[in-house]
């Protein structure tokens, strides 16, 4: 049966649970990427519980909407949200990054077939989503494809090859979401390779662009509805987020792009996320 929608209030509660799961998973693994997982929670919850047509009991349903985590290092948020949706066991999330786990360091379809794509090498997700969107178009399927990118990720040239393709071919069943948390591994994006003005960039490639607070569930819900109603153009949603959102000492702290919290930090983070 197709995924039932959840209310925004329910999602607010779920967001805390997902954030706790992210902290626990990465804490248990001793490695991983907390910052960009925490920043993407509301976007993924909106997609999986408000926007996308999908069926956790029938993950290969031909006409389903598809989500590709192009910023594959944020896999904990994807696993935690998919567990909430019923795709995978929540009680196994803490096997993340461990031998034989379906919860691989980066999304891996060999271990978790309900995932839409294996990702982890940055820059590929938009192109993958475009291929899936073209297939849907050929088949007359209503399926839509969503790819989430990091803002550092859009430094990759392939992103713009895909952006140019989508704009030119008017692929309107694709949405790119940029998790604009302004931090990448080495530090603040502006200090590594500034990518602003993001909105102008996507717009100039022929995309409809929506600039939105990436932690505001109602605003995200409206943005995805606007994207679905946009004909003749792909849509880019620039989700303005806070890296490490929800954990005070992780917020806006480049250290927690790719560093696991210590056991003590896990404890403090979970207290904040009560």
């Amino acid at each position: 049966m197709q995924q039932q929608q959840k209310s925004l209030d329910e999602l607010t509660v779920m967001a805390k649970r997902v954030r706790r799961a992210i902290i626990e998973m990465i804490g248990a693994a001793g490695s991983g990427h907390p910052g960009g997982s925490l920043s993407a929670v509301e976007v993924l919850l909106t997609l999986y519980f408000r926007t996308m047509r999908h069926d956790p009991a029938n993950p290969k349903w031909k006409d389903r909407d598809r989500f590709i985590l192009s910023k594959g290092h944020a896999s904990p948020v994807l696993y935690a949200v998919m567990a909430e949706a019923g795709y995978c066991p929540a009680d196994k999330l803490n096997t993340f990054r461990k031998l034989g786990s379906m919860y691989q360091g980066h999304p891996d379809v060999r271990f978790f077939p309900a995932l839409e794509a294996s990702t982890g090498s940055l820059g590929e997700g938009v192109s993958l989503a475009l291929g899936m969107a073209l297939a849907a178009r050929l088949d007359g399927s209503p399926a839509r494809s969503y790819a989430m990118l990091g803002d550092g990720e859009i430094q990759e040239g392939q992103v713009w090859e895909g952006a140019m393709f989508a704009g030119y071919h008017k692929i309107d069943n694709v949405v790119a979401i940029v998790d604009s948390n302004r931090i990448q591994l080495d530090g603040f994006v502006k200090d590594i390779m500034e990518i602003e003005p993001i909105v102008d960039k996507w717009r100039s490639f022929g995309w409809h662009v929506i600039d939105v607070d990436g932690h505001n569930l109602a605003a995200l819900d409206a943005a995805f509805q606007e994207a679905a109603a946009t004909n003749g153009k792909p849509t880019a949603i620039i989700a303005r987020t806070i890296k490490g959102k929800g954990v005070s000492f992780m917020e806006n702290n480049p250290k927690f792009h790719g560093t696991a919290p210590t056991p003590d930090e896990v404890k403090r983070a979970l207290q904040e996320l009560q």
Binding site: A135, Q158, G162
Partner: peptide, 9 residues
């Protein structure tokens, strides 16, 4: 990669 997306679908 677009080819890969088409193949996935």
């Amino acid at each position: 990669a677009i080819g890969a997306g088409l193949a996935y679908a």
